[in-house]
Design a protein around this nucleic acid. Structure first.
Length: 104
DNA sequence: TCCTTGACTGGCT
DNA sequence: GAGCCAGCCAAGG
C-alpha cells in the first residue's frame, strides 16, 4: 500500500470509542510513527470517509481544536464532541483528564 | 529525486 | 496565557 501510514491512522481513528478523544501525537504513535503527528494532520485533512472515520475525536496535545473539514469546521467538531458527552475545560478545549482514550 | 505543504508540537519570549 | 519560531514526518506534485 502506497499510503500505508494513512491507512493505519484511519484504522486507529475508527477504533476510538464514542465519548472518548485522542491526541494527534498519540494517534501518530499508535500508527507506528511517534513523530509523525504532522502527517496525522494531513491524513485527517484528506479524510476519505468522513462518515466512518470519527476525525472529530482527534484533538491537539492540550485538548485544543485545530481544524475540521466537514460541516462548519471547528464549530461542528465541538458540537459533535459535546453530543457524545465529551467534557470541555474551556469553550474550545476538551478535558483530556477524563476524555482521553487510552488503550493501555 | 527534490521541494512544498499541512487539521502539529514543544520551547522560548 | 498568548504568540512566534524551528523541528519533525509523510504524502503529493
Amino acid at each position: 500500500m502506497k499510503n500505508y501510514f494513512f491507512q493505519k491512522v484511519y484504522a486507529v481513528a475508527k477504533d476510538i470509542p464514542k465519548g472518548k478523544v485522542i491526541t494527534y501525537k498519540l494517534l501518530a504513535k499508535l500508527a507506528g510513527s511517534p513523530g509523525a503527528y504532522r502527517a496525522v494532520g494531513s491524513a485527517m485533512a484528506q479524510n476519505p470517509d468522513i462518515t466512518s472515520i470519527p476525525c472529530h475525536r482527534v484533538v491537539g496535545s492540550d485538548g485544543s481544536m485545530h481544524g475540521y473539514s466537514a460541516g462548519e469546521g471547528i464549530k461542528t467538531k465541538i458540537e459533535k464532541l459535546k453530543q457524545e458527552g465529551i467534557k470541555f475545560k474551556t469553550p474550545n478545549r476538551v478535558d483530556l483528564e477524563v476524555s482521553l482514550w487510552s488503550i493501555f
